[in-house]
């Protein structure tokens, strides 16, 4: 399923979606950026509560399909602009990371 389809079918806010056609091929949950850098796989939907601008760089480095911010975490405008420029999809939700992962379960397993 693509990021665009996933966002449409689920209770998620689209903060920016420059590459709606990216395929979600897995899910990774983590907040320690160095850990995510070493372990997230290309195509994963990365679920995190980390909201500083570095998450955009980490998403680019790991080539995840999107960042999903859990528990109403938001990203500031400057970071969102960087995300847009670098083709990083950013979604958000009031759900917990666990519940977001449940939304992904049928998509990626």
């Amino acid at each position: 399923m693509t990021v665009g389809e996933f966002a449409k079918q689920n209770p998620l806010n689209v903060l920016c979606m420059p590459e709606a056609e990216r395929e979600i091929t897995g899910c990774y949950i983590g907040d320690l950026l160095s850990w995510v850098m070493g372990n997230a796989r290309e195509g994963d939907a990365w679920v995190t509560i980390m909201s500083n601008t570095n998450i955009v760089a980490v998403a680019t480095l790991t080539n995840v399909s999107c960042i999903i911010l859990a528990e109403n975490v938001t990203l500031d405008e400057q970071a969102l602009n960087t995300a847009k420029e670098n083709g990083v999809n950013v979604l958000s939700s009031n759900l917990s990371a666990f519940n977001i992962a449940l939304l992904l379960k049928d998509t990626v397993v």
């Binding site: 160095s34 850098m37 070493g38 760089a57 680019t60 480095l61 670098n86």
Partner: peptide, 11 residues
């Protein structure tokens, strides 16, 4: 250090 190659265009 945990050695990850730098990507100069990003970082």
């Amino acid at each position: 250090r945990v050695k990850i190659k730098n990507k100069t265009n990003i970082f």
